[in-house]
Every structure is written in C-alpha cells, then in structure tokens.
Design a binder for these strands. Sequence first.
DNA 1: AGCACGCCGACT
DNA 2: GTCGGCGTGCTC
Length: 827
Amino acid sequence: LYVEVALPLPIPRTFTYGVPDDLRHRALPGARVLVPFGRKERIGWIDRVVTAAPGVNGIRPLHGVLDDIPCAPATLLRLCRWIADYYVAPLGQVLRTALPAALCDSSTDFVTLLDGATAAPADSFSPVEAQIVDWLRSKEGSQPVARLRRERSDRVWWPAIRRLETAGVLRVDTEGPRLEPPVRTRRVVRLVREIPSLRAREEVFGRAKRQRECYETLEAMGGAAEVAHLTGTLRFSYAVLNGLVEKDLAAFADEEVQRDPYHGMPNAPDPLLRPTAQQQEVISALQEATRNPIPGTFLLRGVTGSGKTLVYIELLREVVERQGRTAIVLVPEIALTPQTVGRFKAVFGDRVAVLHSALSDGERYDEWRSLRSGEKRIVVGARSAVFAPLPDLGAIVVDEEHEGSYKQGEAPRYHAREVAIVRAGLEGAVCVLGSATPSLESWTNSQTDKYRLLELAERIGARPLPPISIVDLRAERKRQKGQNPASGERTPIILSEPLVDAVQQRLQRGEQTILLLNRRGYATFVQCRDCGQVWHCPDCNVSLTHHRKRARLTCHYCFHEEMVPARCTACGANDLSFRGVGTEQVERAVGDAFPAARLARMDVDTTSGKWAHHEILGRVERGEVDILLGTQMIAKGLDFPNVTLVGVINADVGINLPDFRATERTFQLLTQVAGRAGRGGKGGEVIVQTALPEHYAVTTACRHDFVAFAKRELDARRDPLYPPFCRLVNLVVSGTDEAATQEGAELMTQWIHGLLIAQNIEEIDVVGPAPCPIDRIRGRWRWHLLMRSESPRLLGEVARFFYERFELPKGKHDLRIALDRDPVALL
DNA sequence: AGCACGCCGACT
DNA sequence: GTCGGCGTGCTC
C-alpha cells in the first residue's frame, strides 16, 4: 500500500511513500502524515491511497500518521483540490493555508553544547567550528540551527556541526513537529488554606503586612491570581508570594488558559431588533433557500444603513437555532471591529468563534478545535475563516463582498468569495454575498441569474441617504488665491470653506464628524524645489512618504526608513517641498482650524497595537471624540448614530492608479464612507472635495446611484476588454537584475506564444510583457504578462500547463514567477 | 522552500 | 589549505 503525499512546498506534485502495515487502517485521504523528506522530517497530507507500485524507486516508508480523524475531511479536501486546481497551486500549500499553522509546523533541529566541551582544545577548531562554539557559549541551552543561519550568515553550517558532534563537543536533537500544539499555561498563586477568624490572621501574619494584604487581595479575587498580575499591576514582590507559600497558605500552580482574545469584552445585550418589511422579505427568501437541497448563491445589495447585518443574523438564527446547522460569516479584516463582532456575540453568545489576524497560533488552534468539536457553531472571521472546520454547514455570508482583501496576496492566491461559493455548493449551504457596492463580477452574475439578486433599497427607519455635495478643489483654490494672493503657489487645499463651516456646525451641536483621506503620513513625497529631485526608496520604485511625528521618510512597500534630508542630496539646495497631503497633515490642519475639537486619527500608523482599533473606536462611541480622521480603515462597517457629517478630503486619491479597478475602488470608497453619515435620527450630510467633479465615479457616488455607475463602468470594461467580460491570469516575473528579469519575462512570453500556436488556441490573448506599474519592490525588478480569455476553462488549463512545465533559465539573479489568477490589482 | 554539494576566487 | 559566495539539482 502506498500513499501520495501533498507537502507544503512550492513543488507542483505529490510524493509517494510506503505505508507500514501497522499504519494501514489509519492511512486515509486528508490525514496528516510525518514523512522523511531529504534529511528532515516534514508534515504532509495524504492526497490519495494507491495499491499499484509507483514507477519510481527509492520509495521510503512514512514515519507516522498523525490524525485518527483526518484533519482535512473529505469536503475540505475536495475544496482544497478545487483551489489547487483553479488557482494553480500545489495542494500541500493550499492545505497549509486552510489549516491552523499549529497543525502544519515541521521539525526543528537543535544544537546543545555538551558539558565537557569547554575543556575541548579550542585551537583544534577550524574557524567555522570556533564560530559555532562561540555562538553557543553566548547563549544558553539548546538553540535551533535555523537561528544560527539567521543570526550569523547563511553559510553551510552542517558539515562543521557534524564534525563537532562526532568530536563530542555538541549534541544535535531533532524536535519533531508538535503533534499536539502547546496548551498555554500561566503561573498562578492559589489559596490553599483559609484563615477564618480575624484573631487567627493577626497571629499568622504578625507584622507581615504585605503578606496579609496579598492574602486578602487573593481572597477578594476568588482565591487565585496570576503571578504576573500580582507582581506587576498590584506591585507585590516575589518575596511576599513566597512567604504565603512557605506558610502553606497558598501554592504556585500552572493553570491552563482558555485563550479567548475577546475574553472580558462586554457582551452587549441582544437589541432584539425587529426586521422591517423590506428586511423580512429578504430574510424569508434566504431562510426558504436554506431548506432547499441546492440553495444557491444570493447577492444582497443593500444601501449603507439598510440593515444587512440583521438579515445575516436572522439567516443564522434559522440555520443555527432552528436547523441545528452551522454558519460562516466572512468580513474584511478591517471591518472585523468590536462593533461587528459584538452584534453576532450579542445574539449567539458563546457559540461564536472569532478568527482574525491578531490571534496567535495557539489561539487560532483553540478556536479551530472548538469549531470542529461542534462546541462553537458560528465563525466570524476574515479571509481564511472560509476554511473553518464546521460540520453540517448551512450558510456562508460574505459581507462587503467587493473587498479586495478577500484575495490572498501570496500563493495560493485564492479569492475567499469564490471559495465560499464553491464550498457552499459542495456542502449544500446557502451563500450570501452582501454589499452596498457589489463587485462588477458579482453584479453581472446577478443580472444573468447566476446569482439571485436581493435588494434593500431603503435605510432602516426610512432614513434618507445623506445628501452629498461636491467642492471643486480647482475653483476653491482660485477663490482662496483671490482672497489671499500671498498664499504659496501650491498651497494645497485641505479644508475648503464649506467643509470648515460644516464641521464647525457639528462641533457647536455636539455631533460627530468623520474625515476620510486614503493616504497615510504627512506628505506623500519630498521634492527639491531647485532641481526637482524626488526622494525614492532605494529598494522600491516608489516615492518615500514623509512621516512628520517620527521625523522619517518611509517606504510603504518595504520597511525602509531614512532621516528627513536637510538639503538636496543631488544639487545641495536646501529648499525642499513636502508635497501630497496625507492624514498626518490633515490632522494638523484640523487641529489648527478647530483647536478645541477632540480629534482622533485612525490609520495603520496609529493602530499598531493589538487593541488600538478598539480603543479609538471605543472613544468615538462614548462621544469622547468630535472628529474621527482616517484612511479607508474608517470607511467600513462603523455605525455611530451621532456622526452627522462625513468629509472626503480628496476623492481623487487612487482614481488615476494604473489599474483597471481604480475607478471601481474610488466609487466603492466614496459610497462606503458616505454611508457612515446620518445613521441615527439626526440626519446627515457628506461633503466631497475633488478636482475631478465631473468624473462618473464621483457623480454617481454623489447620487447614490450604483446601477448607473455599474453601467458606465461596464461599458468601460468592454474596450479594452477587462473582467467581468473576460478572465485574467497575471504572470509576474521578478528578479534582482533588471535585464535578467526582462529577459525572463520575454522568454516566458515566447514559451506561451509557442504553446498557444502549437495547440492552435486562439481564445487566449497575451498582453505584454511589460514592466509592472511598480517595477521594483524590495530590491526585486518586476515584469508581467497578462493572459486574457473569455474561456475560464481553457485559461486554467494553459495556466496549469505553464506552471508545471515552464522553467526559467536556472539560478541567475534569483528569478521567480508568481501566477495570479483573477487578480484584484495589477500593480 | 530548504538543503547539500561543487566550483571558484580571495585570503591566510 | 580554508572560507564563503554563488549556481545547480533534488527531495518519494
């Protein structure tokens, strides 16, 4: 008996292993196995079990089957096979993405210095050996070999390590993969003896005041507390704790922690909202669909504030409470706020698991187990939650389905929305795609009856959508210049007069304002006024953004940072201009204009901590913030009834990006952020500042007219042909040398042309090769090629054939190919 | 992806 | 002689 094993490596094939007799009954498809691979052991998954002897020799037996119940059950395995096939990626890589990292970790080699080693004759070491020994002496205990590679150089250490091992200087241990991921424990102090009377206390503690305080604190805390908490926040010294232990009043213990990152977050009460008639209609349609063996896919287009979340909740009530099945709710990472999560928790309480990027491996694994066991029956999470191990799945909701973050940026480059549809189909679940601004792909599918369209055309409570007015930045500049001719030739307009007036009004009325600018930092680029030089990242072809508070120029594509220059490095002039307004500069302008206003800024730079989002949004919710300023992060999902004004500082950011979806993204962002206004009873208004007031992305957004936008944009996608009228595969060649990268891209193109001609395929267009719009990132040059076709099947076949057969000329300049099917961006 | 191995130029 | 940098090929 043999098994074909999928390994989490970028190798597009499986490896065959023999199955020892005692493992036969456990060797099932989807089960994890431990296999020898090269000189190491790795974890893989059984793809197929075969009886025929394979056509290769040198087959090795597998070392173990790690699961009694395959951790990728049949349906998940089928789903992963579909992803591997459609998105052209190795099955093992897909499985690794689909399962918690804690279940995929491979083995690690450790080296330990042996006791007698210090006596070993140091002069007999070769320099490499001496380096290893020195390094180990500087550390304590065992060290992973990989760390040696990282901290010293990437040289070949193994021969030297083996020599030292035979010389008895050090020991090498291989720690196998963690079969059972670790349980997190914490050190606690627990009271073990009660002291009933006050008099007894006097006697026991005497003058040990701190011990008594600590004892009584512990009593008040229910008999136990974490050591870190007692010594940290409560400032008891370790000696105090030891004293209690020595008196046999308390004991140290390691306690297993139930990891729950949302632990302690107040569960808001279920507001028991009653659906409106409009909502009820949609809810009924969905509930009915769940009773259908093939429920299908629904596109729920609901304007902002129309109550899509309540629809999801009522759908889940049907699926989870009445039918006893399970459900997945996918949300874009940035919309995974306590507000969104809170609503589901309020209704379904402990049956909800939350999966987001801030979870540690262990936390993620805990949630995964509680889902698989059926203890929790609902998942709310970002992209990868689509793989949640729920038995008897009844519904998948993809909220904000147009969001690009559902596409994974690295292999396997899957789109969670498409995976959700396929998974729902495989498991007989209903799939609901929700958005106020559907992607043109989904919209088209809803017009061709591939999906069923459901609409929520009105806001709840019959509240009107906020009126949107446009401020023409060009006219505003002229006007301000007329008023004050001395103002600099290029002084940017950050806050126009109408916007200032509107904000002022809210401040007076005690209402809140949201200001959007989709650009971080203080200035987007720095330029010399004399010679025109613009500061660029040394490793990426993008300009550096000026961050004023940190006093650094930083690259938003890699981690490069440099000091702010005092003078031009090219011509020596000391007249630099900091241009292109970012949120940090808006923050300053707002502070200057409204010194008394309480302002909060929310972007990647102010939300680095795990709880920073929650903290800022909490302040807004409690009314401690008058003006919330931020990037797209504040455009989604927020529901603050006291926000009556939304201002868009510059709607044109992003509209001119060289990407066919730039216009669509602008429309979506404007619509989404406008939707934050007027969600309470006080009404609301939106002011959009733009230099392109006639652009249809702006005008249709201002009329809240998605259908008109879609029509215009679809027309634009017919020529040149772009999705949804065709499918794309983007092939990106990258390398450390410019010429070699271009050459690689050209070779790739010729190869594909050759294939298309040889196979007589005319239905696939090849566009390029050309440098990528951002032609260098992290020191790697980038060229790309687009394959375009109206036949997804053919496109997939060609992509797969290419992936498996094409090889770039070996070695030189580290050329790599990334294959991106249905790309969401071509930058 | 790792990792071993082999070749080569630089340096002791 | 080593060392260390890079290119090449392989992993059932």
